[in-house]
Write a protein that binds this DNA or RNA. Structure first.
Lengths: 209, 209
DNA sequence: ATGTTTATATGATGGGCATCATATAAAGGT
DNA sequence: ACCTTTATATGATGCCCATCATATAAACAT
């Protein structure tokens, strides 16, 4: 009942990591179970320990993977559309209904932020490295205008981004949630000196979709 | 091994609710256990169902209680210091190290926001009512200046408040966390037209402490 | 003082979980 | 064709949990 070729194990491992990253954001660290992740990857729970030393080891890899994925997505936007347009599109996608409805492929901060401080040290570290990397990319993308205050502005703006999605996700009614997203979108565009609307083109939530 | 007078049951029930509200914010909805809450209230797990129909019923009451507590706290500040000073103090307390270090007595949004969408309908409703009530108080406290845009400004500002605490809590290093808090404090004071510093006086995190 | 009521305690029960021990079957060399 | 290796499956084990059944002992009425 098993078929595999020579490098299937690596592929299997990768798919376990991806499913873990999805399930982690969808269900939270306390509800994510090894058995469920394995099932999502098309396997049973028993083989898990042939791939990872522990659940914690898997989650650490999954965290790193999801931050890298987001980083690639953001960097891709900046490269394709330039700093100003790229940043503007990032904000639009971040505060979109799509992102609100799909935490499983979205930014880790609103999805996992509240749980991080209760996680084992190793996972906290992986998370913080990811946050630092996002902050750096974000502040570098800010208009020249802000000069030495770039980091400060980036922190403030990113706080609003993640808070707006956090709240929008906690509100059941789509219209009301949309008001929160729109309020922050307009506020951010204004204070970051960005144009309110973008040229045509689809915005994606993640580099993997 | 039990002592109680005539209305001790109500007192016991209240203390169960308070401990639940604390433990809910401290450990999250998935990790909070009936047995632990009862122990914190000085009881054992068995008597629980004499007070509540289910764990869910307790959590609903606890959610309502914590929002009411926060509401009282906020309204108290506004009444004692006036709208402008009260709002300014609220922001300072919200973005304080104290609030960062004590989610268990702080605002429910950064502590529970990520979990709400996975909770049973009844709990989501209780949560949303609380959010609506905070938003209303916040927008009414905003300077006249903003006129018809008060709600929009309030949403944007509250998103930044909760996002900043969310992120600051997820960062282990106190100095780095402090930078996130300071960045948002300054940004918010500026865009809400509030003075940067307050007259002397302690800021509290919650009405119950 | 004795018996009834009621608040809390002790001790199941059944389910989910992480982890591990062992079994099976595919790949690849011989 | 056979044997070894290796990727995955099956089936424990022991722990924690929500809920419930039953026991105990305080409070109160008589």
């Amino acid at each position: 009942m098993v078929r595999y070729s020579s490098e299937h194990k690596q592929q299997t491992r990768d798919s376990i990591v991806r499913e873990a990253a999805v399930e982690l954001r969808r269900s939270g660290p306390d509800k994510v179970s090894v058995a469920l992740i394995m099932k999502r990857a098309g396997l049973t729970h028993g083989g898990f320990y042939a791939h990872f030393d522990s659940k914690e080891a898997l989650l650490q890899t999954a965290l790193q993977w999801m931050f890298t994925d987001r980083q690639n997505y953001f960097a891709g936007l900046l490269q394709r559309y330039g700093q100003q347009q790229g940043l503007s599109r990032y904000i639009d996608a971040y505060l979109s209904d799509m992102h609100r409805n799909h935490p499983e492929s979205g930014c880790p901060l609103p999805a996992l932020g509240a749980d991080v401080s209760r996680l084992p040290q190793a996972l906290q570290q992986a998370y913080q490295d990811g946050v630092a990397s996002i902050l750096q990319t974000f502040s570098q993308a800010l208009p020249e205008f802000f000069q030495t205050q770039r980091e400060q502005v980036a922190r403030s703006a990113f706080a609003e981004l993640s808070g707006a999605i956090l709240i929008a996700r906690s509100i059941h009614c789509p219209q009301e949630a949309g008001q929160w997203l729109r309020s922050s979108r307009e506020s951010l565009k204004a204070r970051l000196q960005l144009p309110l609307d973008n040229p045509e083109g689809q915005d994606h939530v993640s580099a993997t979709e």
